[in-house]
Design a protein around this nucleic acid. Structure first.
Length: 584
RNA sequence: GGGGCAGUAGCUCAGUUUGGUUAGAGUAUCGGCCUGUCACGCCGAGGGUCGCGGGUUCGAGUCCCGUCUGCCCCGCCA
């Protein structure tokens, strides 16, 4: 037996026990006579003491270095009362060393897990196995593990079956760019890695597995961000014979488990719901952060038609005037306002106007053109206290003006710390549009995905006139301004699915060709069904309070999709290329 | 595809605004002292392709051009 205990479990009640520990040297404190060594494994840290009387052992202790791997025999000793370290779970005791075995004596490591400095991200990824020794990463992966277990237990208890779907599949049009894998047996043909198991789970519904879930890797070859990786994990869920509220109830049940078991915070009985249109109007986002107010306020009716050229012209072309309340910043400098203006300009707005009352007057262009009664009404609507507060106003085409002012709202919240980090605000966003117009491709594309069921009423009303006004039976779960899950009721009728493909500009032949397997399945007894998928990494990120999903993924890629530790992507042999028919 | 920030000792960072002596600090490493520390302390030493390439200049870590890498944002991501 290598060890009798871990480095995290010995307590005062173990006083006097002969034990064996194994682990990494965290720190050595050599006081000349007595030597203290902190030994670490993933369960915790334990202090070792080298008795100054034992000269030979002390000589060994002096030579120990950080991150050496040791097996230690010794005796547990309760520390004197004034030596107890209350910051350590094992702080009541120490282990008096009788002998040590060096299991590994590495060179000075390029990254010290106990270091007080945060190494650069690049360095951490290059030396990931050392980075993963750090307490923060060990905690993050532990939370990830707990969430995996909670999820499996929850769905299994609710009669869901976990079913695995293929990674080597076929490329489908629509959506993100696929990662592809060349076929050796069929030169010129390619597999694609799934962007999600979407079609498979629908086919499982047709096959009668009416409650399915899977914790599954998904692959998308797009540009990456702090919370986007080329491969990521989803909790994928699908159910038959259900309506939207059935899925929502199951989803809320999982969130309740997570809150109670993992975060240890009570979960609300029911979650609020907000339409997409309302979310865009009030927050300029389909994932509003409800932890603070400062909502967008429409001032179009007050400011239009007073001879202010930019406003009048933009409104005539369908634009809106949107204001946001910035408390206690009436004295915001020209420089600060300039930075906020630059922020919105970078995102496509023409400018940003401060609205404030100084010494009874209204400086700036708004004061020049807009009559006082309208200005007074505007500040009242915004909730501005004219003695102390400021508002920022933009006029631009909708919905861009809402989106950008929504981004500004979040930026201001960061700058002025409007967000209470202990608050948790969850809500459902519902009634999404089914389609949006894509200028680049000059056609309509699905906002969610092409299998999302339309809302029957708006579908009939607008399918031939204004398809972007059709609503869908889709829903997103938003937590503190992050989309953590999204799903929809699916189309289960083949004819309806074909209509949908037509709206997306696909011919019947094309649709049958590209989605033959799904179209076929829908023909042979598809039950009404729908589902949802959680962004698992993002969920872990929110639970751990990290700001990047890289910190909750053991071996992530950089923003250039490079694995710095393993060195991927990399070249492959000529021989492999020839076998795959990529090179003659 | 576009924009921003960063790259200086093994690591974390000053120094770049205004070009000018031998490029500094903390930590790690090595040596010495130290019997109750827990980020132990004290003394000393070694350690540099200032990311890379080119240019301007009497002189470049510092200015200019290009390039690579990492991070952040916009677009993109059904």
């Amino acid at each position: 037996m290598y060890r009798t205990h871990t480095c995290g479990e010995l307590r005062g009640t173990d006083d006097g026990q002969a034990i064996t520990l194994a682990g990494w040297v965290a720190r050595v404190r050599d006081l000349g006579g007595v030597i203290f060594v902190t030994l670490r494994d993933r369960y915790g840290k334990t202090q070792l003491v080298f008795d100054p009387e034992n000269k030979e052992l002390v000589e060994q202790g002096k030579r120990l270095r950080a991150e050496w791997v040791l097996q230690v025999n010794g005796t547990v000793r309760k520390r004197p009362d004034d030596m107890i370290n209350t910051d350590m779970p094992t702080g009541e005791i120490e282990v008096v060393v009788s002998s040590i075995e060096k299991l590994a004596t590495p060179d000075t490591p390029p990254l010290l897990p106990e270091d007080e400095f945060e190494p650069s991200e690049e360095h951490r990824l290059r030396w990931r196995f050392l980075d993963l020794r750090r307490a923060r990463m060990q905690r993050n992966l532990r939370v990830r593990h707990e969430l995996l277990q909670t999820t499996r237990r929850y769905f299994s208890d609710q009669q869901f079956m976990e079913v695995e779907t293929p990674f080597l599949t076929r490329s489908t049009p629509e959506g993100a760019r696929d990662f592809v894998v060349p076929s050796r047996l069929h030169h010129g043909d390619w597999y694609a890695l799934p962007q999600s198991p979407q079609t498979y789970k629908q086919i499982l519904m047709v096959a009668g597995y009416d409650r399915y879930f899977q914790i599954v890797r998904c692959f998308r070859d797009e540009d990456f961000r702090a919370n986007r990786q080329p491969e990521f994990t989803q909790i994928d869920v699908e159910m038959s014979f259900i309506h939207e509220d059935d899925i929502m109830r199951v989803t809320e049940g999982l969130m309740k488990q997570i809150f109670e078991d993992v975060i240890k915070v009570p979960f609300p009985e029911t979650l609020p719901q907000m339409s997409y249109a309302e979310a865009m109007q009030r927050f300029g986002s389909d994932k509003p952060d409800l932890r603070f107010g400062n909502e967008l306020v429409d001032l179009t009716d007050l400011f239009d038609g007073h001879g202010f050229g930019v406003i009048d012209n933009t409104v005539k072309a369908g634009g809106k005037v949107i204001g946001i309340h910035v408390p206690d910043q009436i004295k915001a400098s020209r420089k600060m306002v300039g930075e906020w203006e630059a922020y919105v300009k970078e995102r496509g707005l023409g400018g940003l106007m401060p609205l404030r009352k100084v010494d009874g007057a209204w400086p700036g262009p708004l004061g020049k053109f807009i009559p006082e009664p309208q200005l007074e009404q505007a500040v009242k609507r915004l909730g501005v206290n004219t003695d102390s507060d400021l508002a920022l106003v933009a006029v631009a085409p909708a919905p861009r003006v809402h989106e950008v002012m929504g981004m500004l709202r979040l930026e201001l919240a960061r700058e002025f710390e409007w967000i209470d980090k202990d608050r948790h605000e969850l809500l459902w966003v519902i009634k999404f549009p089914l389609l949006e117009y894509n200028e680049e491709e000059d056609r309509h594309v699905a906002l969610h995905h092409p299998f999302t069921a339309p809302d029957p009423e708006t579908f009939e009303q607008y399918k031939d006139s204004e398809p972007t006004k059709i609503l869908s039976q889709a829903y997103d779960l938003v937590w503190n301004g992050e989309e953590v899950a999204g799903g929809s009721i699916r189309i289960h009728d083949q004819a309806m699915q074909m209509k949908m493909f037509n709206l997306l500009g696909m011919s019947e032949e094309e649709a049958k060709n590209r989605f033959s397997f799904l179209m076929e399945a829908l023909q042979y007894g598809a039950p009404p069904h729908g589902g949802i998928a959680f962004g698992f990494d993002r969920l872990v990120m929110l639970i751990t309070g990290e700001s990047s999903i890289r910190d909750v993924i053991p071996f992530p890629k950089t923003t250039q999709a490079v694995a710095l530790f393993e060195g991927a992507p990399g070249v492959i042999d000529e021989k492999q290329l020839r076998e795959l028919g990529i090179k003659a």
